[in-house]
């Protein structure tokens, strides 16, 4: 069962919940955690497992072969992303703009734009106790997160078909990277905080999950700051509230040092237990 942990707003506690929940769930279930926030992957800072495998990941881009090229300019014409441009007697490729659609390459009459691979990032597979952890990291300078996210999900599908819980730490926002990270999931946990920013972005995240037709529930982090509007929203809109994690300077301090908190904060362990109870029931339903 795939569970994405997402939030509209950044910094609400997605990574805190992903890492702590994953570690907690391993006591009863098989679990793999994948960090799909590839622009800024942080889960690994809290998991610190033993490296078992690492793979470079690539995207395909066209490479100009001068010899047979007739400079007809079709490549430039078919590229919707301005990634291939004819300049005088040269064809120039801009890898950052390329979406790997293959149109220029496959439509070229003289086969002058074969596709080659270009590294965009890296997947690293770690083990911490019983927990498997897969980190996906976009190279700085690469602008497109989506191709790497989709390859990471493929890696999870290939290696963890029998694993009970596949937890995805999703990127923030409501645009293409978060869609990619959540569209295959069976269930989404939306993490928010009880502030006006939290509420505003929760509503956007809810809309996003609705557009994908996903089942979801809400976890309120840093409960106690701000106001009750998020709570009222969940009640009025009949959104399932899975847990409330209390606001605590102690949690913030433990987080700042890269520590998992559930062993030291009973309220966190309780919140995770509530979530686990729900997920176990849900996974029994999904599997049956």
């Amino acid at each position: 069962m795939k569970i994405s942990i997402a939030s509209g707003k950044g910094g609400t506690g997605k990574t805190t919940l992903s890492t702590n929940l994953s570690a907690y769930l391993t006591e009863k279930s098989t679990v793999v955690l994948a960090d799909l926030d590839v622009e800024e992957p942080n889960s690994g800072l809290f998991i610190q497992g033993k490296l078992v495998n690492t793979e470079d990941k690539y995207k395909m881009i066209p490479e100009w072969k001068e010899e047979a090229c007739t400079l007809c300019g079709l490549c430039q014409e078919v590229c919707n992303f301005n990634a291939v441009i004819r300049l005088g007697t040269q064809i120039m490729v801009f890898p950052q703009l390329c979406h790997s659609c293959y149109a220029c390459s496959e439509l070229c009459q003289s086969s002058s734009l074969p596709m080659i691979s270009q590294k965009i990032g890296q997947i690293s597979h770690y083990k911490r106790g019983k927990l498997d952890f897969v980190e996906s990291r976009l190279d700085v300078g690469e602008e497109q997160a989506v191709p790497l996210i989709s390859q990471t999900i493929k890696y999870i599908d290939q290696h963890f078909s029998q694993t009970r819980f596949k937890i995805f730490d999703a990127p923030p926002g409501t645009s293409c990277p978060v869609i990619e990270a959540t569209k295959d999931s069976d269930f989404i946990i939306l993490v928010t905080e009880p502030t006006p920013f939290g509420l505003h972005d929760l509503k956007l995240a809810v809309e996003t999950m609705r557009s994908l037709n996903k089942a979801f529930a809400v976890v309120i982090n840093r409960y106690g700051i701000g106001n009750d509007e998020v709570l009222e929203y969940c009640q009025n809109e009949k959104k399932r509230l899975l847990a409330k994690i209390p606001n605590s300077r102690r949690i913030a301090e433990l987080y700042s040092r890269g520590e998992l908190v559930f062993n030291q904060i009973p309220e966190m362990a309780q919140a995770l237990k509530d979530i686990e109870d729900y997920l176990l029931k849900l996974s029994a339903k999904v599997l049956s």
Binding site: E40, L138, E142, E143, Q144, A145, P171, P172, G173, P177
Partner: peptide, 8 residues
Amino acid sequence: PGIGCPVV
């Protein structure tokens, strides 16, 4: 946030 196309 991030390092991708919107921040660039």
